Simulated assay, not measured.
Amino acid sequence: MPMSSYIESIRTRIGNDFLLLPGVTAVIRDGEQFLLARHAHSGLWSLIGGGVEPGEEPSDAVAREVFEETGARIQINAIIGAYGGEPMMVTYPNGDQVGYMTIAYECELLSNAAPDLDEIIELGWFHRDTILTLPRRHWIDRVIHDSPVRAQQDTE
């Protein structure tokens, strides 16, 4: 997805200098499997999310971002936490320096997901242990760690 007009207007004034941005992250699970996306610009795996637009509610932003990147609708169940700091700082290939502060939401899919090939190379379901072996944005480790472990349901 191209840069928002809001960010673009700021970038025309500050160039590539550091910019702190609010974001949202969707933690989408199926049992102990997490849905991750491999991003086209970095080739790294991460949780699905993006920026909050001016005037937008964060919960609306996470639903919009998931839909834009996967075509899927979600239900938000809970807030997992808020994250920021050094692990959330990125310098993009064009030189733009960004620090994100993100709110992570526990979500469930209400429809099928397929990647938006402009932004996302592929989607995959991974167990939390497997995620640690992937080329990934390392900040997601903390979010996944904070995501509650689900008790196994007894089947009789």
Score class of each variant (00 low, 15 high):
F67N: 07
A78M: 11
E8Y: 13
I28D: 00
V52L: 05
E57H: 14
R128P: 05
G71K: 09
V98F: 12
A63D: 02
T133A: 13
L47N: 02
R142H: 00
R142Q: 15
L117E: 15
F126T: 00
S46P: 01
Y6V: 04
I121T: 10
A82G: 00
T25S: 13
V98S: 08
D141E: 08
E69D: 14
I121G: 02
R13G: 11
R142C: 07
G55H: 04
P54Y: 12
V143S: 01
G71E: 12
H127T: 05
I120V: 15
A114C: 11
S4W: 12
Q97D: 10
I14L: 07
M101S: 10
D17S: 14
A72I: 06
A104K: 02
L36N: 00
Q75V: 09
G85M: 10
D17G: 06
V27G: 01
G51N: 09
E106Q: 13
A61F: 07
F67D: 05
A37D: 00
V66A: 10
T70H: 10
I74W: 00
E119P: 05
D118N: 12
S5C: 09
L35R: 02
W125P: 01
I7W: 12
Q33S: 09
E8W: 11
Y100S: 03
P135H: 06
P115T: 11
F18N: 08
V98M: 12
I48T: 01
V149Q: 14
E122Q: 11
I14S: 08
H41Y: 10
V24T: 10
A113C: 05
I74F: 09
G81K: 05
L117C: 10
S9I: 04
H39T: 07
E69P: 03
P22D: 14
R29F: 07
N77H: 13
I7F: 11
E32N: 15
I103S: 03
D118I: 01
P135S: 06
D141C: 10
S147G: 07
G71V: 05
H39W: 12
Q75F: 06
E56R: 04
E68C: 01
A61M: 03
S42Y: 09
I103T: 15
L35H: 03
S9N: 14
T91Y: 03
G95N: 02
